[in-house]
């Protein structure tokens, strides 16, 4: 592993680094400081809070699964295509990153809404209307989270290069075997990082969900929406909002630590 000699960060990096960490951590400290611990337990164990947390976890996992199923093949395609098309694909994938999530929500509503051609087709085929449904939450979360997974996996594939894959191919391995025995195991660290980012983004999703899926307790009211709704209740709603924020924060950290602990080697 890397030795300590000659690779330590230069001294002048310390001050900005500490400021950077402070910028990230101090708001959370302020949040914790504002929590009213007297009602904390009651707030986080209320049926509404638990419904919202359970819904957030279910939709977050579902959205992450959707992103893995769609995103890994897309990343492989991008990493192994010619520079021009790869650039175009990367730009397209990055769109949800720069798009305000609320705009994404409006766009999803226009695409899948019940007055749109696509929405009407879905309705006539399966008798389903997407807006105001749990499926809409998963779609909104997948929309905003997919770029994180794709870019992370693609980055790790690209940095590895195609050398091992070419070697395997010259030794007679077929494309499928190269993909499953060489490419994916080597991309595993990128995949784990991508899954973590993707899940974190999905579970924190607010704007697109609010616009596209709405805010119905137990159906589309995920934690961020429950927090905003509680916050909008004047007076004592604020305490509940802070308590719910801490509950979401704690749960997300727990899930992410578990994913981290899950060694890339176990992926194969």
């Amino acid at each position: 592993m890397a030795s300590d000699i000659g690779v330590r960060a230069p001294g002048f990096a310390v001050a900005p680094a500490l400021l950077g960490i402070a910028l990230l951590v101090m708001p959370l400290v302020a949040l914790v400081a504002r929590a009213s611990w007297g009602s904390f337990w009651q707030d986080v164990t209320s049926p509404e809070a638990l419904d919202a947390l359970w819904l957030s976890l279910r939709t977050g996992v579902a959205a992450t699964a959707v992103c893995v199923v769609l995103g890994v093949p897309l990343a492989v395609l991008m990493a192994r295509s010619a520079p021009k098309p790869a650039q175009l694909l990367r730009a397209l994938v990055a769109v949800p990153l720069v798009l305000p999530p609320m705009v994404g929500g409006v766009a999803l509503l226009y695409l899948f809404g019940r007055t749109s051609p696509v929405g009407q087709l879905i309705d006539s085929l399966w008798g389903v209307t997407l807006p105001f449904s749990t499926a809409a939450v998963v779609i909104a979360q997948s929309f905003v989270a997919l770029p994180f997974l794709v870019l992370s996996v693609e980055g790790s594939l690209r940095s590895l290069g195609a050398g091992y894959e070419q070697a395997a191919a010259t030794l007679g391995a077929g494309r499928w075997m190269v993909l499953t025995r060489i490419t994916l195991p080597m991309a595993a660290p990128g995949l784990v990082a991508g899954v973590i980012l993707c899940f974190a983004r999905a579970i924190g999703e607010f704007g697109a969900t609010a616009l596209f899926a709405g805010n119905a307790p137990g159906i589309t009211q995920t934690m961020p929406l429950a927090i905003y709704t509680a916050f909008n209740g004047a007076g004592d709603g604020r305490d509940a909002a802070v308590a719910l924020s801490l509950l979401l924060l704690g749960t997300a950290v727990l899930v992410l630590v578990c994913v981290r602990a899950w060694r890339p080697g176990a992926l194969k």
Binding site: L109, G113, R114, T115, P131, F132, A210, A213, G214, N215, A216, P217, T220, Q221, Y228, T229, N232
Partner: peptide, 20 residues
């Protein structure tokens, strides 16, 4: 039983205007 409980009156109006 509301299909959605919006955060403000404008959001309710928008969902009606959009036909959702």
């Amino acid at each position: 039983k509301a299909a959605s409980q919006e955060q403000n009156v404008t959001a309710v109006l928008q969902k009606v205007i959009a036909g959702e």
